[in-house]
Simulated assay, not measured.
Amino acid sequence: MKNIFLPEVSNEIIERINHIKPDSQPLWGKMNAAQMMAHCCVTYEMAYENKHKAPNVFMKFILKTFIKDSVVGPKPYKKNSQTAPAFLIKDERDFNTEKKRLIAYIKETQESGAKFFDGKESLSFGKLSEAEWNVMFYKHLDHHLGQFGV
């Protein structure tokens, strides 16, 4: 798994994002390019902002027990896999706005560095190691950039 905290990896991801255009079509799935970028921003919103409601104790137990390994583990996501409700983007979004937001989050994450995330509490999964945060960030971006053929 590539390390999203390294400048060269973050720059590579940003370069891939820059190859996506507002009218780029996905190879699978229902989201358009702007919705996909908004969807990818949710991971960062949960890491940096107090914008999303934390799951209740029971749901957090379910997420940690049954979902966490698929999100922070190395196994790639399956195409058309189900996502959490907070990640569903059904309304239309402005492509340039979402693209700028996503790139800004990627840059902030790289500049904050791995140590900032080591032991940081995840809204859904509890405390994660820097390696788990890396996998979560990188794998999700790589999956959706691949969805758009970049």
Rank of each mutant, 00 (worst) to 15 (best):
T83P: 04
P85A: 12
K30D: 14
K30W: 08
S81F: 15
G29C: 06
S10P: 01
F116R: 07
S10A: 15
V150E: 00
P26V: 07
I89H: 03
K139C: 04
P22Q: 10
L88Q: 12
K75Q: 10
F117S: 02
C40Q: 01
S81H: 15
P74Q: 14
W133Y: 09
K78H: 12
M136Q: 10
N96Y: 14
P74M: 11
A47G: 00
S129A: 08
G73K: 09
H52M: 09
E8T: 05
H143L: 04
K60P: 02
E49H: 13
S10I: 00
I13M: 07
P26A: 07
I67V: 15
D91G: 13
K51L: 13
A54L: 08
N3I: 02
E121P: 02
F58A: 12
Q147M: 12
P7V: 01
E132V: 04
T83H: 12
K53D: 10
K68W: 05
E130N: 08
L123S: 10
Q110V: 03
I103K: 07
L6T: 01
F148A: 01
E108T: 12
G126L: 06
K139W: 04
A47D: 00
N56Q: 04
S24D: 06
P22C: 08
D142H: 07
M31R: 06
A47Y: 02
H19Y: 11
V135I: 13
M136T: 05
L145P: 04
Y48N: 09
K21L: 13
G73T: 10
V72F: 07
Q35N: 07
P74L: 14
E130I: 00
V42Q: 07
G29H: 07
P55E: 05
A131W: 03
L145K: 03
K53Y: 09
L27H: 11
F87E: 12
P74E: 15
M46E: 14
E132P: 00
Y138K: 04
K127F: 04
Q25C: 08
W28E: 06
R16N: 11
I103A: 09
H140D: 08
H140E: 09
T109K: 04
N3R: 05
N96C: 03
G73A: 11
K78P: 00
D91Y: 11
K99A: 04
N96S: 13
